[in-house]
Amino acid sequence: MRLVQRRRLAERWKAAYQKPVVSLNMKFVNPGFEPQAQLEKLLQREEAIGGLFYAAKILGFDHVHGAGPAVWVSGFDSALAWRGLRPALEGECADVILRQHAYPRSLTRGAVQVGNVRVSHIIQTWLDVSAHATRGA
């Protein structure tokens, strides 16, 4: 078996994932603790998965610097009730960006454990960041 027209197939695959994603900018409530430690604690929750450029960094493919960490959640209702987080006010820099994925089952099935956090696998990460505005052309 041989795969033909790989580039065309990859472009069609990416296009299916380029639907607008709803996201919420969030702040950590406790400023006394290191933000990275709070993020790792957040990613130990079963319903939270590190994504986008944060996942790329954890997986060893860090190629964008300065992008805020993104966390995939299954739903905003439960995530907004998590202790230690609050919505960021207008004009306030977010500590973490909660995002709701268009295909949550695909995301959770392929999540990988790296150390003590779960992140999206490398193919999912590529789909999510390949045409992201933060990355640029």
Score class of each variant (00 low, 15 high):
Met1Asn: 07
Val4Leu: 13
Val4His: 14
Arg6Glu: 14
Arg8Tyr: 08
Arg8Glu: 15
Ala10Phe: 07
Ala10Cys: 09
Trp13Val: 13
Lys14Ala: 14
Lys14Leu: 14
Gln18Gly: 05
Pro20Gln: 10
Val21Arg: 11
Val22Asp: 11
Leu24Asn: 06
Asn25Ser: 07
Met26Cys: 09
Lys27Met: 01
Pro31Ala: 01
Phe33Trp: 02
Glu34Cys: 12
Gln36Val: 07
Ala37Met: 08
Leu39Thr: 01
Glu40Cys: 10
Leu42Thr: 06
Ile49Arg: 11
Ile49Lys: 08
Gly50Thr: 08
Gly50Leu: 03
Leu52Asn: 09
Leu52Phe: 13
Gly60Lys: 04
Gly60Trp: 02
Phe61Pro: 00
Asp62Lys: 11
Val64Gly: 03
His65Thr: 12
His65Leu: 09
Ala70Asp: 02
Val71Gln: 00
Trp72Ile: 13
Trp72Leu: 12
Val73Gln: 08
Ser74His: 05
Gly75His: 10
Gly75Thr: 13
Asp77Met: 07
Asp77Thr: 14
Ser78Phe: 11
Trp82Asp: 09
Trp82Thr: 07
Arg83Glu: 14
Arg83Leu: 08
Arg86Ser: 00
Pro87Gly: 01
Ala88Asp: 04
Glu90His: 02
Gly91Phe: 00
Glu92Trp: 00
Ala94Leu: 01
Asp95Gly: 04
Ala102Tyr: 06
Ala102Asn: 10
Ala102Arg: 05
Tyr103Arg: 15
Arg105Lys: 12
Leu107Cys: 13
Leu107Lys: 03
Leu107Gln: 04
Thr108Phe: 08
Thr108Trp: 14
Arg109Thr: 06
Val112Ala: 08
Gln113Ala: 10
Gln113Thr: 09
Val114Asp: 15
Gly115Leu: 11
Asn116Met: 08
Asn116Cys: 10
Arg118His: 14
Ser120Lys: 02
His121Trp: 11
Ile122Val: 13
Thr125Glu: 06
Trp126Arg: 13
Trp126Asn: 12
Leu127Tyr: 04
Leu127Ile: 05
Asp128Pro: 12
Val129Ile: 15
Thr134Ala: 07
Ala137Phe: 04
